[in-house]
Amino acid sequence: MSTNKTNKLSWAILLGGFAFLYLPIFILIVYSFNESRLVTVWAGFSTKWYGELFEDEQMMSAVWMSLKIAFLSASAAVALGTLAAIALVRSGAFKGKTLFTGMITAPLVMPEVITGLSLLLLFVTMSQVLGWPEGRGSLTIWIAHTTFNMAYVAVVVSARLRELDRRLEEAAMDLGANKFQVFIYITLPIVAPALLAGWLLAFTLSLDDLVIASFVSGPGSTTLPMVVFSSVRLGVSPKINALATLLVLAVAMAAFIAWWFMRRNELQRQKEIRSAFSQ
C-alpha cells in the first residue's frame, strides 16, 4: 500500500520535473510553426520560418561555424582528456601531479568570464611575442573550447577508468596479449561509452558557449550563440525557434537510437549470461 503511494509520488515528481525542463522547449517548437513574427501572438500554422532559416546566409554560416568548432574541439578534447585521465589514474606518481590534478579540475569551475578574459590576453601576448596566432578567429575559439572541454572529458573518463576492473587487463596479458592489444580489445571497449559521453558533453558545451567565444573570436568566426545573442536587438526571430526545433529533433533521435542500442546490447548480454549458466 505504502509502496504504491511512494510510486505515485515519485511519478508525480518526475512528471513535474520533466514539465519544468520541457516547458521552454515545447514553447519553442509550437512557436516555430507560428505564422506571426511576434512570439507572443498565435496567428496560424505555417512552416515558412523553416524556409527562411535555410535562406539566411548569416545564420547558416554561423551554424556551420559552430558545428565545425564543436566537432573539432570535442574530438581534440576527447584525445587530450583521455590521455589526461590515463595519466591521472594509471601513471602512478609523477612530478607535478598535484598541479596537474588541480589544472584538470580548475577549468570545470572557472567562471567563463575569467577563462575568456585570460585566454584573450594570452593570445594577445603570444601574438606580440611569438607572432602566433597571427589573429583571432576559429583557431583561437577551437583552442579555448578544447581547453575547457578536455577537463570535462578527463573527469568523465577517469571515473570510468577507476571503475574498470584491472583484473580483466591482467588476465588478457597473462594470455599473451601485448599492452597495445589489451588497450584496443579490452580497455577501449569498456571505456568507449565514457568517451562517447565525454565527446557529446564537450560538443554541447562548445555549441553553447557565448562568453568565451565573444572574447577570443575574430573576423569571419561568428558562432551561433553570438548571432542568437545579438538577435535580441530585433527580438528572437521565429527562424531561431525553427533552428532550435531541428536541433531538438536531431538530438532526441540520436539519443533514442543510442538508448535503443544500449538496451539491445544489455538484453543480449543478459541472454548470454543466462545461457552460459544453464549450460
Binding site: 521552454p24 512557436y31 554541447t204 551561433l224 533552428l243
Partner: peptide, 19 residues
C-alpha cells in the same frame, strides 16, 4: 533529464523570456 542541455542554452533562456 540531460536531453534539454543538448539544445542551445541561449535559445532556451530566450524561451524563458517569452514565458
Amino acid at each position: 533529464v540531460i536531453l534539454p542541455s543538448w539544445t542551445s542554452f541561449l535559445i532556451r533562456i530566450y524561451a524563458w523570456i517569452g514565458i
